[in-house]
Design a protein around this nucleic acid. Structure first.
Lengths: 146, 146
DNA sequence: GGCATATAGTTAGTTATGCAACTAACCAAA
DNA sequence: TTTGGTTAGTTGCATAACTAACTATATGCC
């Protein structure tokens, strides 16, 4: 027995992700205004490389919840912009290890600040408790479906 | 003073919309399995037309939180699939009013059931109270940024 | 060693998104 | 009524997504 029943279309905006679209758009706008010329999708890849440099493309797929072709193209574009480099792994020549360039390292602090600013804009007027619950729910949704 | 400060990247998945991506993907998969050949984006347009047929493209932009070119192309594709028709407004010839075809009317019940199923899959194990709070937070985020 | 299978990544084709620039129609003020 | 601004929609370009099919390398079993 499902533990929730919804009225017709009640959770439409939940499903269609208007909130996350709005956040992504605002973050993109904030990047642009700061003169930072990367897409939010590219940023999400850099984000994981800042945490751990030299990940393989497959690891980036898992981390960013994207499929392999998407990561191929994102890395293509990041490489064009000289933000990352593909390096063939010596252990397993099927793998590309992705390394940040100095240019990309310089972007970390500034973009993380912009991300924080964006979230503060988004969550203005929401209590920490509610944010926490919301985050928890979204995590469960992700785990249920991934 | 912002009322929330986040640890570095703490809300990454909040920002990048993994949960809504996962829901959209699952809904798409459920459509496909049921033999329904529309994209979730197309469904989101049909959704609003089921509530109110004959909306203009601009109204669909506002309703679906998309820009005008996106709606132009979605309506193009829906028209190709014979699910909607563009009808020039008599009052204002700049406007196209978008009307559902019989084929599209037939899809409503089945796809709304699939949407419900998908949401139940997504929200399995989450209490109604938490869902309610999460929905409220997402609405505020949307209102803050739109 | 050799073959089947699995894994990492790329390529091709379709759909979707965002921005900018454009056309057409409407409207209001001179 | 003409001029100038606004609104509705389209088109072009770049990026991104998913699916399916592909190449190349690795691995495991005989």
């Amino acid at each position: 027995m499902p533990n929730n029943q919804f009225k017709r279309g009640e959770l439409y905006s939940f499903m269609t992700g208007k909130a996350s679209t709005a956040i992504a758009r605002r973050l993109q706008k904030n990047f642009k205004q700061a003169g930072i010329d990367i897409t939010v999708e590219q940023w999400s890849v850099l984000y994981h490389l800042w945490k751990q440099d030299g990940m393989s493309q497959q690891e980036l797929c898992n981390a960013t919840f994207r499929d392999k072709p998407s990561i191929t193209r994102l890395v293509d574009n990041l490489e064009k912009q000289k933000l990352v480099k593909r390096v063939a792994s010596k252990d397993d020549r099927r793998m590309n290890l992705i390394y940040l360039t100095d240019d990309a390292l310089k972007l970390e602090i500034q973009t993380m600040e912009l991300a924080n600013t964006t979230l503060n804009e988004a969550l203005e007027g929401v209590s920490s408790e509610k944010i926490s619950i919301c985050k928890e729910v979204l995590q469960i949704v992700y785990d249920n479906l991934k």
